[in-house]
Simulated scan of single mutants.
Amino acid sequence: MSKRLLVLRHAKAEVGLGLADHERPLAERGRRDAAAMGDFLRAQGLEPDLVLCSTALRTRQTLEELGLTAPARFERSIYTGDGYDLLDLVHLTGAEVEEARTILLVGHNPAVHELVIVAGGEQVEDFPTCALGVIELADWQARGGTLLAYRTPKTI
């Protein structure tokens, strides 16, 4: 049975504010975009079985605004890793929860953009805030799959 990897860039965050990057909160637009993306995921039957989320405040707030019910694991490596590191994390996690059919990863550019290109096997020119890549994988150990959909808040 094929697996789906949903790759979501965090929603629009506040700029600056004198805070460390890890602690930047979502902007009001980001909250609206994340809520709309959550509605889209539910309407498309794309609710995940598990969420892997960066520990940064803006990713945690994005996840909260999505309004999903799946259990979440918060991973610092999503904040610091590149696309290949994120794919390795999916492989490790998928092996732990083989019964999961859909995993959502909420992270940051450029790593999530790179992950969509590497795992989806297709060039995606831009990956703005709250962009979503839906990738079909043969199994959780697959190095690559098929990009089924690419959506942004403007295209949902």
Rank of each mutant, 00 (worst) to 15 (best):
S54A: 00
E75G: 02
E65A: 11
V90W: 11
R31M: 08
G38W: 10
L41H: 07
Q44L: 04
E114F: 06
T80P: 03
Y150R: 11
A72K: 10
L87R: 11
P48Q: 04
L63C: 05
E125Q: 13
H22W: 08
I135T: 02
N109E: 12
F40A: 12
L104S: 08
I135W: 04
P25Q: 08
G30P: 03
I103W: 10
T152L: 05
E14G: 02
L52D: 07
K12Q: 11
G133L: 00
T146Y: 06
R29A: 14
E98D: 15
R73F: 07
I117Y: 05
R24M: 09
E14M: 03
P128W: 10
A100T: 01
L86G: 04
V106T: 12
I135C: 04
L50I: 02
A95S: 13
R76K: 14
L132T: 13
S77L: 15
K3D: 00
D85Y: 14
P25N: 07
F127P: 07
V134G: 03
L86W: 07
A36N: 14
M37A: 13
L104M: 11
G30H: 03
V15N: 14
L132Q: 08
A111K: 12
D21C: 03
D85F: 13
Q61W: 07
L104Y: 09
L132K: 07
T102L: 04
A95M: 10
A95Y: 02
R73E: 15
S77I: 12
P25W: 11
A100Y: 03
R42S: 09
S77A: 15
L50T: 05
H108P: 03
D82Y: 10
G18Y: 03
E14H: 02
G45T: 10
A34K: 01
V15P: 02
L6G: 01
G81V: 10
H108N: 06
V97Q: 14
W140C: 04
L41N: 02
V112E: 05
K154H: 12
T146D: 07
T152Q: 08
A11Q: 03
V124Q: 01
E64D: 15
P110G: 05
F74W: 11
L115V: 06
